[in-house]
């Protein structure tokens, strides 16, 4: 093993080396190359910055929020406009909107992460297995995918929530169930081109089992495009969650979910515009950030783009 170098300049050289000396150096070097391609994209960096800020906001909500997100004073602080004391104003229950948005970031992140963790692996597995196996397996799996794809996402989510009962967890499950088919399609399309490659024929010739070929040789090549697609879908996921919240089928009061907050502000949207505007802006900024991040990731990870 090599000794890790000390200064920044030698670190860079070590990472970019043409002849890595160890597995670790080779994979770190590759990651560094992708990072450099990503970092060149200013907008993507801005998106990453916002997403990181969201992450920190959720993590330190207790320290950051000036007031309680769920308890307000109905006598003194009801529907106050933005001011130094309440930056984004207060809502009809006298609760500070800034604090509610800060705590709401936890719910948004919870939804986004859980949907990604549930939907992406399902889509990836279904797509690669269908693409590699072909024939009857492919037909069966892809028809199931088609069925899920044929349902309008929000309507199916509505049906699920109606069956399972309202609540943020059920909303997440509903969104996850409706969002995996596109990932399966992408993974299948990629697998169809990869399975014909000689490097797959070579491992087949060595006697690798189909499971091993899919898991170790095909999936790693499909992961990057699925990650890009998931990131680009994040905005849609946040909007669907907010939509369910708006309809009263997602997060239940008094939890500070951004979509539910807009629904709440709808009653006062003409006179007390800030009640709906602040969570709306929050949804907009985070959705945009995920879109920018996804775009940057596509440029950095696309196997066809960068060598």
């Amino acid at each position: 093993m090599t000794v890790a170098p000390a200064s920044a300049e030698t670190w860079r050289e070590w990472l970019m080396s043409d002849r890595p000396q160890s597995r670790r150096q080779a994979s770190l070097g590759r990651a560094y190359g992708a990072w450099r391609a990503f970092a060149r994209n200013r907008l993507a960096m801005a998106g990453l910055g916002i997403v990181l800020a969201l992450l920190l906001m959720a993590l330190f909500a207790d320290q950051l929020a000036p007031y309680s997100p769920t308890v307000g004073d109905l006598r003194t602080t009801r529907l106050l406009p933005p001011s130094a004391a309440h930056w984004f104003g207060t809502d009809d229950q006298g609760r500070d909107i800034l604090s509610r948005i800060i705590y709401g970031s936890r719910i948004t992140l919870f939804v986004v992460v859980l949907v990604a963790v549930l939907a992406a692996p399902i889509g990836l597995a279904v797509g690669t297995i269908a693409g590699y196996a072909g024939g009857l397996v492919d037909a069966a799996l892809m028809r199931i995918t088609d069925i899920f794809l044929a349902f309008p996402r929000l309507i199916l989510a509505l049906a699920f929530v109606a069956a399972l009962g309202p609540g943020i967890e059920n909303a997440v499950i509903a969104i996850a169930i409706t969002s995996w088919p596109p990932y399966a399609r992408i993974a299948r399309a990629e697998t169809l081109t990869i399975r014909q490659a000689d490097y797959i024929a070579a491992v087949k010739l060595m006697g690798a089992s189909p499971g091993r070929i899919v898991l170790r040789h095909i999936m790693p090549l499909c992961v990057s495009s699925v990650i890009v697609r998931v990131t680009l879908d994040m905005a849609g996921i946040i909007l669907t969650a907010a939509g369910l919240g708006f309809l009263g089928l997602g997060a239940q009061p008094p939890s500070p979910e951004w979509g539910a907050m807009i629904a709440n502000g709808r009653l006062y949207v003409l006179d007390q515009w800030w009640v709906a505007a602040a969570p709306g802006a929050a949804i907009f900024v985070v959705s945009l950030a995920f879109n920018l991040l996804g775009d940057g990731l596509r440029d950095a990870l696309d196997p066809k783009g960068v060598k």
Binding site: Y199, A201, H217
Partner: peptide, 9 residues
């Protein structure tokens, strides 16, 4: 160019 896995060392 086609017989080696592009993402493997």
């Amino acid at each position: 160019y086609g017989s080696l896995h592009p993402r493997q060392t």
